[in-house]
Design a binder for these strands. Structure first.
Lengths: 235, 235
DNA sequence: GTCCTTTTAATTGTATACGATAATAGGCAA
DNA sequence: TTGCCTATTATCGTATACAATTAAAAGGAC
């Protein structure tokens, strides 16, 4: 009928989407530093595909704000300005309470269970050592916010949050001081507790405070350095 | 960001972006009916470019939700389902008050003047006859909402509204009953009046009612038919 | 040694070529 | 006719080729 159908299509994975997702993950997990040049040839070699598919992936990421494409110069991992960083978090402060209230009516036992499973995963990673665990923790932290958006049942809100969470990671990579929001996990837990008690407004307050804490950890001056292209995919 | 930009008469203009914008405008102004197939060859012939650029444009539009790309089948003007339509308007109801409150502190004489100029343009088009005026009216109506978002100064909110407004046009094209929100222009005016009086909450209420009216005009059953590909660009 | 010009190399922009997939038409049997 | 199977055609998916642009290097002049 309409495009509402997800259409499982082929069991053969879409290689173009795979490249896009791989690069996005590398950016979000901060294996690729902001400003890193993403040469079409180099990326293509890494994934053993032609520039055609790489260009498509980079274009997609540019739409998400994770990559900047400069005409005749190439694509670079986005390097969010201070203004952009502030707008990203300002928008999150506006959107996340709205999402919580929208999700509230759909929250039942199953949803709480789902969120608690994510919390458990976060905790598991927190107690783990090493860089890979830190990266997974970044992703898991974002997944929590996305899961709440998913409960709202509004696909558009989900997409918006998707973009905001991804770009937030980039901002944190650039301007974050402490390694990770170890407090963040605790705050996630409090939010779920409030939701379980049907205290939606309380959850909103906690969410705003949570975002405040993340933003407070930013130092909007320095610029960190990260790994190069080959490093990010350890090839 | 529609083609509001006056005249980038530069011969170094990005041809790919031009194609994308042209197709988007055709979709938003309803010269291209939902469901219309956008064959890469045909579109390329129309614009005298290769499939390469057409593919890029169609991919971009698919991110915006204006086009659906089906693997190995091609691209089609999006055909929003009833659920999608409801989510689009639900999201607008959530976002637009937020945007109004965010814009409020930045509203001064200049901003009111700017909005009133848009209202004047809307009125001018309303009093005009013919299909082209109707199309321009659709665009002008959307531009009003985008202008409010622009005043907020938040580029991310602007992008979100951009997408929502464009997709709304598509939904109205599909499910709209009366030709145009003639009441809509009046409601825009009331919103500006409220903003001028610094009555932000009043403006929010009016905005919500405005969106309600638009949505009330939808008949979420029938599917209209529109012009074909060549028609839309009268080539 | 520094600055400027010229040449060279590397990278992107766009078109084209070819293989793969799906839609279509034609033929055959029931 | 209707239904099914096969052959054909059209369209998409991806790689490659060539042109255009930019960045870098080499060579002088001062």
């Amino acid at each position: 009928m309409t495009s509402a159908n997800p259409a499982p299509a082929d069991n053969a994975i879409d290689i173009g989407a795979h490249i896009r997702d791989a690069i996005r993950e590398a950016i979000v997990e901060r294996r690729l530093a902001p400003g890193t040049k993403l040469s079409e040839n180099d990326v293509g070699s890494l994934f053993n595909v032609s520039r055609t598919l790489v260009r498509a992936a980079l274009q997609a990421l540019s739409y998400e704000g994770l990559v900047n494409v400069e005409k005749n110069r190439g694509a670079f991992v986005a390097y969010p300005s201070v203004t952009e960083a502030q707008q990203i978090f300002a928008t999150r402060r506006l959107l996340e309470p709205v999402i919580l209230r929208e999700a509230a009516p759909h929250i039942g036992k199953a949803q709480i269970k789902e969120l608690r499973e994510l919390l458990a995963e976060e905790e598991r990673l927190t107690n783990q050592r090493g860089a890979p665990a830190r990266r997974a923790e970044i992703k898991a932290s974002g997944d929590f916010h996305l899961a709440v958006a998913a409960i709202s049942g509004n696909a558009i809100l989900m997409r918006f949050m998707d973009e905001l969470v991804a770009r937030s990671s980039l901002v944190i990579a650039l301007y974050g001081q402490s390694v990770i929001s170890s407090c963040g996990h605790n705050e996630h837990q409090q939010i779920v507790d409030a939701l379980e008690k049907k205290d939606v407004e309380g959850a909103c307050t906690l969410m705003l405070r949570h975002i405040d804490h993340i933003e407070a950890d930013l130092d909007l001056r320095l610029t960190k350095k990260g790994g190069g292209l080959r490093d990010a995919f350890h090839v």
